[in-house]
Write a protein that binds this DNA or RNA. Structure first.
Lengths: 134, 134
DNA sequence: CTCTGTGCAAAGCGTTTGCAAACGA
DNA sequence: TCGTTTGCAAACGCTTTGCACAGAG
């Protein structure tokens, strides 16, 4: 994965901080600000939290990164992918992506409500297989 | 609707402020803190925002009230009802309740992911019939 | 009478802003 | 070189806390 091209595609100048942000998001899948900042700090001890905020906000504006609001948790960030749902394990907090076919659902809602549906946010709360066994 | 019984059921003492909070939530369906506070202020000019926060937090803890997190908007509060989805009009901000049968979806996810699903949060973004015509 | 709720002010916390210096193109 | 990004500190806005007084049971 070439993060340089990706950043340039979104008109974001290449900086070491940004490359690392993208790398962490890519590898972690979902990260909240604090986690991200902690990891970045290891590589850039002088890094400012403000820089992380500025970059995430910018990347979200450009729709290169997406913010995922999880009930009762801090927002997490992910590289923007095709629309998908999230399953959150209420015990360990792990977040799993889930590609759902919501076509039927959306068609159904369109006819019953007469709304034009643009997007859907689906978050499921559950217990992951690992936590079930504990 | 007898709000007094309802409050007592949740072990909440009856106060004029609380009765009015419940009344507004009941009539509005979905309200954010600012709206709620503005309306309450008309009846209780000395009301403190802190009181509204304290009460909402308490009512949410007791699951009498639910917080609904909407992407790119402040949370709104509603009296806890049976699980349902929300459609948000991206133009006018109106929120509509939608009772969806998610049984198929949930069963499907349970088998494919092996997660126990406890609850689901579904928010749809769209354009309401009224805004479509403008 | 006792315990809880209210209102006020202050504190707390996460996020944003302004600015000078450093850096990327 | 010029415009952007960084890091720092201060400001900001929302939410929570502590406390004295008022009110509910």
């Amino acid at each position: 994965m070439n993060y340089i091209d990706t950043l340039q595609k979104y008109n974001l100048k290449i900086t070491p901080q940004r490359l690392e942000i993208v790398d962490i998001l890519y590898k972690d899948g979902h990260t909240n600000i604090d986690n991200l900042y902690d990891k970045l700090k290891q590589k850039f001890p002088t890094l400012s939290l403000a820089t992380v905020y500025k970059n995430l906000n910018l990347m979200c504006e450009k729709d290169f990164v997406s913010e995922v609001k999880i009930p009762n948790q801090k927002s997490v960030y992910e590289l923007t992918k095709t629309e998908h749902a999230h399953i959150v394990c209420v015990k360990c907090g792990t977040i799993l992506d889930l590609i759902l076919n919501t076509d039927d659902l959306v068609t159904n809602i369109k006819t019953t409500t007469d709304y034009d549906i643009l997007s859907s946010v689906i978050v499921l709360n559950g217990i992951c297989p690992r936590c079930k066994d504990i």
